[in-house]
């Protein structure tokens, strides 16, 4: 059986510059997959293919397939809006909207057409609890999300993603702008969420990949060099480039 989400022979160009080269990869359900590699290797670009965030850049050209639930999401019939409701994303820089905490989390459900106050309240609370930030903000839901610390903002963004009840959560270096304590909190939350969601994380932090992921994939210059279970990858990588990177011999 094919997995829920995979890419086949995926190539991507920014104008004339090729950023992804024939990437084949299949994601395991209800687990955490980490993409590692030096900066500029195309791992973030690859991640943004799964919710068609690259649509926002005018000069992008994509070849190959990204398949979710049996449908090519770049195909003519695919609706990016529907796809993004099923495949959520947490960005590198915490990006709360300039609205209150409550409005941030309720934004997705509201857009999807949910109007009942009671339902919204429930969704907001549930999502904030899942993102492990409910206790910190429950008394100040009206406060602007921009007034929170970076770590809190990122968990609000996670809660906001959870509120649309996606199946898959894409995380684009979610901790790179955070301090170690905030990072630990996010990582714990991810491990808790694993039982319900398929999580894909891009990280430049090799230790983070080792700590939390089940599968790891290593990318270099737009190519998928090697992938496997995290244990295998870190203990006996096949490719020399992979072992060089994991052992810190890359910039």
């Amino acid at each position: 059986m094919k997995d829920k989400l995979y890419s086949k022979d995926l190539s991507l160009w920014y104008g004339k510059k090729q950023a992804l080269k024939n990437v084949d990869f299949s994601f395991k359900d209800k687990s955490i997959t980490a993409f590692i590699g030096p900066s500029g290797c195309g791992k973030s670009t690859y991640l943004r293919c799964f919710n068609r965030m690259n649509d926002l850049i005018a000069t992008v050209n994509i070849e190959g397939e990204v398949v979710y639930n049996g449908i090519d999401i770049n195909g003519k019939d695919a609706d990016p809006v529907e796809i993004r409701k099923k495949i959520g994303m947490v960005f590198q820089q915490p990006n709360p909207l300039p609205k209150s905490i409550y409005e941030n989390v309720a934004y997705g459900p509201k857009i999807a057409g949910i109007k009942k106050k009671k339902t919204l309240n429930d969704i907001v609370e549930k999502s904030l609890r899942k993102a492990a930030i409910w206790n910190e903000v429950k008394d100040e839901l009206k406060k602007s999300a921009l007034a929170l610390s970076g770590g809190q903002q990122q968990r609000i963004c996670l809660a906001r993603t959870l509120a649309i009840e996606p199946e898959i959560i894409l995380m684009d270096e979610p901790c790179s702008a955070l301090d170690p304590i905030a990072t630990a909190k996010i990582e714990q939350t991810m491990l808790d969420l694993k039982k319900d969601y398929t999580i894909v994380i891009v990280t430049h932090n090799i230790q983070q990949a080792a700590r939390i992921s089940d599968q790891t994939a290593f990318m270099l210059l737009g190519e998928l060099v090697e992938h496997g279970t995290t244990k295998e990858m870190f203990e006996k990588p096949i490719n020399t480039e992979t072992s060089d990177y994991i052992n810190g011999r890359y910039g």
Partner: peptide, 9 residues
């Protein structure tokens, strides 16, 4: 409510 996709069009 009008469907968002229709509102978009």
């Amino acid at each position: 409510m009008i469907k968002p996709q229709i509102a978009q069009k």
